[in-house]
């Protein structure tokens, strides 16, 4: 991902060629640097944050729902190249998969959600990992994180009704060896879901279609 721009300053007497050494390997475009008049040379550098950030991934992260064919057209690549890059991203586990983002009130049969704070006993070998992975294995658990602070794990859980979720906590989670305590909070209302504002007021009928 490009996370610049940043300026490097150097005395004018330095040759541009010798300034290239300041430019990281991932520096994407050769024409991005130039010499300014006066005392300093300025080089505008975009630091590459992660080597795996491909143009396909950047486009995906913009958030517009596009087919791979559309992506190929935008990026001036072949359809196969886009597919291959997506496969590569999956293989490297950068891209884990595709899921639709549903409105929380959309009736998909799993309408009750809770976050559960879990305290567990770390183990001599493996620390929290073995137990965290066991807890994550349940299909009721959507996400699970190791946390700093007053408890150890935070699990996001879904069920079709209150009873389901309560049963999961009391019968399966709390009874696991190593689980010291649980504290369950039910979600009442969602305002933003994975980047989507739910009360979107952006629809903009006043925006004119032609402006100077």
């Amino acid at each position: 991902m490009l996370v610049g721009p940043k300026y490097l300053k150097a005395r004018h007497t330095l040759q541009l060629s010798s300034m290239r050494r300041f430019v990281p390997r991932h520096f994407p475009r050769g024409e991005e640097f130039s010499c300014r008049d006066g005392e300093y040379c300025f080089i505008r550098v975009f630091f590459a944050k992660k080597a795996f950030m491909s143009s396909v991934l950047e486009l995906l992260l913009e958030g517009e729902a596009l087919s791979t064919k559309q992506m190929a057209r935008i990026l001036n690549m072949t359809h196969e190249e886009v597919e291959r890059e997506l496969e590569e991203l999956k293989k490297k586990k950068v891209l884990l998969g595709w899921r639709p983002v549903l409105h929380p009130e959309a009736n998909d049969g799993l309408n009750v959600r809770a976050v559960i704070e879990v305290k567990i006993t770390p183990e001599r070998e493996g620390g929290f990992n073995r137990l965290a992975e066991r807890i994550s294995g349940f299909e009721e658990v959507e996400s699970c994180y190791l946390m700093s602070g007053g408890y150890d794990l935070l699990a996001f859980v879904r069920g079709s009704n209150l009873h389901d979720v309560a049963a999961f906590v009391s019968e399966r989670l709390a009874t696991m060896g190593g689980v010291l305590s649980t504290s369950t909070h039910f979600l009442l209302r969602s305002y933003k879901e994975q980047g989507f504002m739910l009360a979107e007021r952006n629809a903009d009928p006043v925006k004119p279609k032609v402006t100077p």
Partner: peptide, 11 residues
């Protein structure tokens, strides 16, 4: 492309 330079900064 290239860095934007303002004319105000020239001698």
């Amino acid at each position: 492309q290239g860095e934007h330079v303002t004319i105000a900064s020239l001698p």
